[in-house]
Amino acid sequence: MIKERFQGLELLATAVVVSDFQGTVLFANLAAESLLEVSRRSVDGHSMAALFVEAGQFGEFLAKAAKDPFGIKRQVFELVRPNGSSEHVHVTLSCPDANENITLIELREIEQQLKIDREARMLDQSIANKELIRNLAHEIKNPLGGIRGAAQLLEIELPSPDLKEYTQVIIKESDRLQTLVDRLLAPHRRPHIVALMNIHEVCERVRSVILAEHRKGLRIVRDYDISIPEFMGDLEQLIQAVLNVVRNAAQALSAHIADGTAEIILRTRVVRRVTINRKQHKLALDLQVVDNGPGIPADILERIFFPLVSGREGGSGLGLTLAQTFVQQHEGIIECSSQPGRTIFKITLPIQLEEHSG
């Protein structure tokens, strides 16, 4: 039986359809059912070519694969779902056995591939940034202590109180830089306290803090999926990560808060069969922070998670960097999309129901 033979394809997150050389569907895995947004029963026995705008070209593509079963063929086609929606997909054809009338058709969303590539770049960039920050912070820390100490000794020797005003400037600015350095190093020093936690406890703690800071003019809307299970994580780290993101949104809403129209939405959902940083996960949390502010300037949107990058005057540019660090320490990813009137920070975290042994 074809279905029994290819049952292992059900474990793949990639959409795979098995057809004969004529393109008649023999089997489709769960991921294909999800991509096509239709039940597998409704496509079994039907022509695969009928799913594409370029039906004729797909037929020719399939015929080439049948003539050269040892090669792997790749091409982009526009997929049309039964519900009328369409999407460009990367189609890969291969034949598991040259003597059989069977073709494996792998369908990969182009947007999904772009997302994977983007996540990989972000991860590599984040690792490089953290290494740079760590090295820079250590290089600053040692001479900073020397500058502060020299200023204190100089202050003792100065005869005039008026001159001591200048040494106090040196000492205070050294202390300010020391605080900044400590904040840069803090995420790398802090031990993980991993235990079962609830994401809505995180959201409620953050909501309470932000509403205490902004007692008037700001509305924080809860849009929770209460079915999300508890998962393994560091509660305090995730509270800090989400707090940094929501506080960043509240600061961007200052004008709206003044006129009473500011709104932040905390939305939680479960997503299944998701790829995060090149790893596949059966279950993940999708936490979105949505605000109705002016949006993030286009010139800094791609650099929003870089250290010391801020769109706000007087901002340290560390809040989102630290949020990204804490999220990545949970094997997750944080992304941002923005346009005037709607900015979305999306945190995706794999849901680990119990701590791995070993």
Rank of each mutant, 00 (worst) to 15 (best):
Ile2Tyr: 11
Glu4Arg: 08
Thr14Asp: 14
Val18Glu: 02
Ser19Glu: 02
Val25Gln: 07
Ala31His: 06
Arg40Trp: 08
Val53Leu: 13
Gly71Tyr: 06
Phe77Cys: 00
Pro82Gly: 01
Asn83Pro: 07
Ser85Gly: 06
His90Phe: 10
Asp97Arg: 01
Asn101Asp: 15
Ile102His: 01
Ile105Leu: 04
Gln112Cys: 03
Lys115Ala: 12
Met122Gly: 04
Leu123Lys: 12
Ile127Gln: 07
Asn135Gly: 13
Asn142Gln: 14
Leu144Ser: 10
Leu144Phe: 04
Arg148Asp: 12
Ile171Ser: 04
Asp182Ile: 00
Arg189Asn: 09
His192Tyr: 09
Met197His: 05
Met197Asp: 00
Glu201Tyr: 05
Arg205Met: 12
Ser208Lys: 10
Val209Lys: 13
Pro229Trp: 00
Met232His: 01
Asp234Val: 03
Gln240Glu: 13
Ala241Arg: 00
Val242Met: 05
Ala249Cys: 14
Gln251Arg: 13
Asp259His: 11
Gly260Lys: 08
Arg269Gly: 10
His281Ser: 05
Lys282Val: 07
Lys282Thr: 11
Leu283Trp: 01
Gln288Arg: 15
Val289Ser: 01
Pro294Val: 12
Gly295Arg: 03
Arg303Leu: 13
Arg303Glu: 15
Leu318Trp: 06
Leu320Met: 10
Gln328Asn: 12
Lys346Met: 12
